[in-house]
Amino acid sequence: MSGTVPKKRLKDLSFWQKIYVPEIIKGLSQTLKQMFQPSFTMEYPEVKFDPPASYRGRPVLVQEENGIERCVACGLCSRVCPALAIEVQAGETEREKERYPEKFEINMLRCIFCGLCEEVCPEEAIVMSKDYEIVFTNRADALYGKDKLLTPIAKLQDRINFLRQYKG
């Protein structure tokens, strides 16, 4: 191959660009225009962000209208979780679906919001919610049990519809 190839500019600057002043005026006029546009910034936390259905907030358990969770404690979410965030202990009930989660715990310090638990779930029982405000001040509080995870199905309809449209 040949040796050095002389560097060539894509485009040489024109005279007006070289003197710089018109470019400054252009920039400043853009700034001035934006000052009178409606504000884009959200005044969080006074104003809350309402995420779209595709948003992956913290995973929650779907609670049917009769108050019973859909989860049958198969443990697939726990197995697939790349961060080992989920712990499930199954128990036996008298209901037709004989298996239910006696304990269902997500360690929110481990959770990486990948959504694999939702993807693997055969019962559509764990879904990603729109909740992005996850706050705790010690390790023990980061363990979200069934009390924090169970969410009425009405609140999750958006995500479920999204999943039915795009999942699988």
Partner: peptide
Amino acid sequence: DCPICDEA
């Protein structure tokens, strides 16, 4: 039944 079956 695999999700609720112990044999899985």
